[in-house]
Design a protein around this nucleic acid. Structure first.
Length: 287
DNA sequence: CTTCTTGTTACTGA
DNA sequence: ATCAGTAACAAGAA
């Protein structure tokens, strides 16, 4: 379930550990990934120069190689860094408990980078939806072109309005989840943004008042930035670079709170299916 | 046993 | 062309 704030937290954590470290070996454990990693052995002796992110996608850049390594964690993917001579977990995506874990706790190893001094970075993924993929500059640009507005950057309200106009018949939740429109929002933050904006998720875009559009717009950036600050949301026990849980979970107002009282109005939080997803909302606070 | 879960893409039918 | 709905992907939890 990593969405933009969790992926950004992972990126920040990883940057501190793996930049400029020499790669000794790359290993593929899941054959499903092989066709996406053609030529991966050329990365031997190279160094990770930078890790970028667009939406929920991580982009590894290298010092020598002109190729880019893309990592998408999808729902259960974890990127884990283990320092030399340590079994302690340093950086994670999701894990089954908030406790310290060693290597043996990761039973779904898919891909691994060994660094020169014995530390490793690996992809662990239970459900095998996550991918790592090597692409060239042209392919990278094609992929980048499919992403919409980046909420952590300065977005113009006028650009957001234009997007809304083009999707008049869509419901607003489906709009927020569409990565080609606004990137990085998943099921948790879509629900939280709409609660904060006071708008029901099933509302059609054309029905939104100007004031509601403004509130949705401002809350996209506000909530995602706040969540990054809080190091993401620990729901399936995601942990960050320091092995800490994401604190945004304490700030969730509707997600996963169906059947509980709304903190604002005491009404019961409901859960319905909207845009094919479990959707949480307060029928009183959201119009 | 069945049902549900998230992110994304592909497909179908309106 | 849009949009909603659903299957698929894979595995585990309830």
């Amino acid at each position: 379930m990593p969405e933009l704030p969790e992926v950004e937290t992972i990126r920040n954590g990883l940057r501190r550990f793996v930049l400029n470290k020499e790669i000794k070996e790359l290993k593929i454990f899941d054959k499903k990934l092989t066709p996406f990693l053609l030529g991966y052995k050329k990365l031997k002796n190279d160094k990770i120069l930078e890790i970028d992110r667009i939406g929920k996608l991580l982009i590894f850049k290298f010092k020598k190689s002109p190729l880019f390594l893309l990592v998408h964690l999808k729902m259960t993917g974890q990127l884990v860094y283990l320092p030399n001579n340590s079994k302690k977990l340093m950086v994670g995506g999701h894990s089954n408990s908030g406790q310290e874990k060693d290597r043996e706790n990761f039973k779904h190893l898919r891909f691994q980078i060994n660094f020169l001094k014995g530390d490793v970075l690996f992809l662990n993924d239970t459900r095998r939806f996550a991918y790592v993929k090597l692409v060239n500059k042209i392919e990278l640009n094609t992929i980048k072109g499919k992403f919409g507005l980046e909420p952590l950057e300065k977005i113009k309200y006028s650009d957001f309005l234009k997007l809304l106009e083009g999707r008049a018949n869509k419901n607003i939740k489906a709009f927020l989840l569409d990565q080609s429109l606004v990137s990085g929002i998943g099921n948790i933050y879509a629900d939280e943004i709409l609660f904060a904006a006071g708008v029901l998720p099933q509302r059609k875009v054309f029905s939104l008042k100007e004031s509601e559009k403004k509130l949705i717009f401002s809350n996209i950036s506000r909530i995602l930035k706040l969540a990054v600050k809080k190091r993401g949301t620990t729901f399936s026990n995601y942990i960050d670079a320091e092995g800490q849980t994401g604190e945004f979970v304490k700030l969730l107002k509707v997600y996963g709170r169906d059947g509980q009282k709304c903190q604002k109005c005491q009404n019961l939080i409901l859960k319905d299916r909207v845009a094919g997803r479990g959707t949480h909302y307060c029928p009183r606070c959201q119009k």
